[in-house]
Nucleic acid binder design. Structure first.
Length: 294
DNA sequence: CGCATTTCCTGGTAGC
DNA sequence: TGCTACCAGGAAATGC
């Protein structure tokens, strides 16, 4: 599941290839819809650079538009279809044909269609409310312990759910939320407003550390994620808790447990991550995990 | 307005 | 073998 480190890895690989290239035409292979809006406008514009905000790739175009891509859960961007298994061809959704030298085609392949690939007017993210209200970049100067603490103070949601909302900080998804909360010793169900200054500072550092370490490994491949050149990310081997329920906690040796927080599978260490107090979050989580009839 | 819930979608897997 | 049921989840849409 591409989160910030995976998208940043893709961005770094796309940047030298795409910067300055002119788009000849865009072919939409999926049914038209809001996830693929405005692609016809891209023809004739050149790509000024490849940027990123949180998990969104944002490519400003010379004609005043932005090409925005979100990989969702299974989206992959490749030069042509190189590096992908033959079985991926039927899930190719978009082809971007470039003028000039090879490779002159970018493919967006997305089996589960949770991704987006669209063109909007520069900076008009009204059709992507999460992007429009995105928190600060975790590796940028605006993300500070004070800012995070202040943001957490404003919400009564479970701290993990709040992190996943992208509002306190951009780009943290299910994997790195679990990893960062474990590193910081914060229970995922703790009400955000009850996370104290010391914990917020630890969480701030943990988020930066785990994202940086994962970027260094080109991200985490659990199943679908691949880099632009078809490589798997190397961070899966370094995960401390995500997907490891029942195994030993790498820090205390206790047994990691699984629960459901905001409809998301969550792994944590009950010994290292003590809940301060969150009666409201507890009630919601129990309702969520009990809802099984359907 | 803000939050909780539902929806989108298919490959992989468990169970029979 | 082949069938069904179910699970994974980021963000938008919908509901309250």
């Amino acid at each position: 599941m591409p989160e910030l480190p995976e998208v940043e890895t893709v961005r770094r690989q796309l940047q030298p290839w795409l910067t300055g290239r002119t788009i000849a035409k865009v072919t939409l292979l999926a049914p038209a819809g809001p996830k693929y809006a405005g692609l016809e406008r891209a023809a004739g514009q050149s790509i000024e650079r490849v940027g990123r905000r949180g998990k969104f790739l944002i490519m400003p175009l010379s004609g005043g538009d932005d090409l925005v891509a979100h990989l969702g859960m299974t989206g992959v961007i490749t030069p042509g279809s190189s590096g992908l298994p033959d079985s991926a061809a039927k899930h190719r959704r978009v082809e971007v044909h470039l003028e000039g030298g090879s490779p002159n085609r970018l493919d967006f392949t997305d089996p589960r269609r949770f991704g987006r690939f669209l063109v909007v007017e520069r900076g008009d993210y009204s059709c992507m409310p999460t992007l429009a209200a995105l928190g600060p970049e975790p590796l940028g100067p605006d993300f500070t312990p004070e800012q995070l603490a202040a943001s957490l103070r404003r919400s009564d949601m479970a701290v993990k759910t709040y992190l996943l909302s992208q509002r306190p900080v951009a780009g943290v998804g299910n994997i790195y939320a679990d990893e960062a909360l474990w590193r910081a010793g914060v229970h995922p169900l703790t009400s955000a407003s009850l996370v104290n200054e010391e914990q917020a500072t630890a969480l701030h550092q943990a988020i930066r550390d785990v994202l940086t370490a994962s970027i260094d490994a080109q991200g985490t491949t659990l199943s679908d994620y691949r880099t632009v050149y078809g490589e798997q990310g190397g961070y899966a081997d370094r995960l401390d808790v995500y997907g490891r329920a029942g195994a030993e906690c790498p820090r205390c040796g206790g047994q990691l447990e699984r629960l459901v927080v905001g409809q998301r599978g969550t792994t944590f260490c009950p010994d290292c991550q003590k809940r301060t107090a969150a009666p409201r979050a507890r009630k919601l989580a129990e309702r969520g995990s009990t809802r099984r009839s359907k």
